[in-house]
Design a protein around this nucleic acid. Structure first.
Lengths: 158, 158
DNA sequence: GCATATTAATTCACCTTTCAACTTTCACGG
DNA sequence: CCGTGAAAGTTGAAAGGTGAATTAATATGC
């Protein structure tokens, strides 16, 4: 992104693809958020629950959780505080590194996860997955993976 | 999203595709934001500029602009206030409907757009468009379009 | 014509995110 | 060991976003 007078403009086709991608991202997040609302969770809450429930001992170091959910440490810290107040997680100090903390899923958090997950999956299917043929989904996955890798390489401080 | 004990879980393939899509959305927005930062603009600012600069008379009614950028009227109102303070747009009242307002691109806004657009395009190319083969981009576009339509149909109040 | 409903846009109060500053603990070179 | 720098995590203030309530103007039905 330097002084490029030589970068070609987007063709119509490229422009359409780009805007469609943008629209889908945004509308989809909105819709998922809406579908979670009745359960009193946000997308962020839900993603934390997923990450923790899949982890060893239903716990993760704050840093790892931040990395896993692609958010800043600061943001995660606030987020976990809120979820702690809601009774979904608790902080537990780490023996091996006394600077460190674990975010641990509470029983209530686990139970919430079990209860909400099927609805969320249904939502993801309905508004995304099931709208593709299996072949298209495969194609999507293969063409998007390099993009994800490219972006992960050059992501600085979240 | 009712009482679905019958919705199948996501297969591994589906899960991978879904998470890849999520990661790309997030990382990409972050990267674009970073690339705009040196010009003192956010993604939101930029999108407003695009919409206005493409419009008749470089102006749009607040409502239309909100619809075009998929944000709530409230959010747009704040956003325009900020951009007005930055000198990029100005509000102008509407003759034919005295409730209405136009957001109008100022000369400075237009000039900013002209100056920044090539860099933004380069950024979009570098981190997204140019990472696909033309065929993949076409496939992406065709498989994503129905998703966008599906979501637009059922989007309530933003 | 006049009450009623709708639409455009803003405002207010509240919540979330960001950014920089700070505390505590660990790593490691001499 | 011990100082110096880096890492883990938190905090607080400022900026941004949300949703409901509000204001003002227009449309609608009788």
């Amino acid at each position: 992104m330097t002084t490029d007078s030589d970068t070609p403009w987007l063709t119509d086709q490229e422009q359409r693809a780009w805007r469609t991608h943008l629209d889908v991202s945004r509308l989809l997040m909105h819709q998922l958020e809406r579908d979670l609302q009745p359960f009193g969770l946000t997308n962020n809450d839900y993603e934390i629950l997923v990450n923790l429930s899949e982890a060893e001992g239903r716990r993760l170091r704050m840093s790892d959780l931040a990395a896993g959910t692609l958010q800043s440490k600061s943001r995660l810290s606030h987020q976990i505080t809120r979820m702690e107040n809601a009774g979904l997680v608790r902080r537990e100090s780490c023996e091996s590194d006394r600077r460190g903390l674990y975010a641990v899923l509470t029983d209530e958090g686990w139970e919430t996860m079990r209860r909400v997950a099927p609805h969320h999956v249904a939502s993801v299917r309905k508004h995304f997955i099931d709208l593709f043929t299996p072949e298209d989904l495969n194609a999507l996955q293969s063409s998007l993976t390099p993009v994800a890798e490219h972006l992960r390489e050059r992501r600085g401080g979240l």
